[in-house]
């Protein structure tokens, strides 16, 4: 993720200097627009999707589906904390679609005037506590996040899962004592999978995706912080048709089913 950020940071001034900032990102898409109009739904080129880390599994799967339907199309993902993605977009990172894990980070993109269309909420998610198998820290609920002897991971406050965690802690009147503030939810989950933390505040979908590698503990206060996931195409997208096709797939019955299977709620 860091390397990507650096690449983007390096790429921005270079692209700006060479005057191709608007058309970068998918050299192969220039011919695709014409092919799309001439031969119906055929899409080609490279579609770049910036998506919240919690969407990693389900979006990768949906991307493969779109590629299967349109063999000429290559769907490329950047999964990271929504805040990092929103800021990369604001700095000029080339992408076609943005899916955020909360409204606040979508607003960053809106304020920067980068949206290709109005964002639509396509899923919801709630927090869950992930613990290593066997629950070595004997964690039972949100209140355990105030226990200093435990090693605890929470997302950084600007990341949607961190913002949601703050809401939960406030609702539960818990003075949380995390040991590390992770930059995206998957990084927090990884620390549990490694057995290096006693518990992490992640999404219910992450616990589900991790399978037997972690144990999930749901808690009633999670209802106080339900995250809505908005998605939109981006104005600078060199291939709006392909971008819209991906958004349509996410919002389709098949997309809805994939999201439900992964544990996401309906908007």
């Amino acid at each position: 993720m860091r390397t990507r950020t650096l690449l983007v940071l390096l790429a921005v001034p270079v692209l700006a200097l060479t005057g191709c900032g608007g058309t970068s990102g998918s050299s192969g898409t220039t011919g695709s627009a014409s092919s799309t109009t001439s031969s119906g739904p055929k899409l080609a080129g490279t579609l770049t999707v910036f998506a919240a880390a919690s969407l990693t599994d389900v979006f990768t799967d949906l991307g493969h589906r779109l590629e299967k339907e349109d063999p000429g199309l290559h769907v490329r993902f950047t999964f990271a904390g929504s805040s990092a993605l929103a800021n990369q977009l604001a700095q000029g990172a080339p992408a076609d679609v943005f899916a955020s894990a909360d409204q606040a980070q979508m607003d960053v993109v809106t304020r920067a005037g980068l949206q290709g269309g109005a964002p639509t909420v396509f899923a919801t998610n709630v927090l869950e506590i992930a613990v290593p198998p066997g629950n070595p820290g004997h964690v039972t609920g949100v209140a355990d996040f105030a226990r200093r002897p435990l090693t605890l991971a929470v997302c950084a406050p600007q990341v949607p899962c961190g913002a949601a965690a703050l809401k939960v802690f406030a609702a539960a009147h818990v003075d949380a004592q995390p040991d590390t503030l992770e930059q995206d939810v998957k990084a927090a989950l990884t620390k549990v999978q490694l057995g290096e933390v006693d518990a992490a505040m992640v999404y219910a979908t992450d616990v589900k995706a991790a399978g037997t590698a972690v144990q999930g503990i749901s808690f009633p206060e999670a209802r106080d912080a339900v995250n809505s996931y908005p998605i939109c195409t981006l104005r600078s997208s060199p291939d709006p048709t392909a971008a819209q096709a991906f958004v349509a797939l996410v919002r389709s019955t098949a997309g809805r089913q994939a999201l439900t299977d992964a544990g996401f709620g309906s908007p």
């Binding site: 904390g81 805040s83 800021n87 950084a156 600007q158 930059q183």
Partner: peptide, 17 residues
């Protein structure tokens, strides 16, 4: 305070917008 050194702070500020 415990592990956030300057280079980390630079990166986190950038990620935080």
């Amino acid at each position: 305070g415990t592990t956030e050194t300057m280079p980390l702070a630079v990166y986190l500020e950038l990620a935080a917008g």
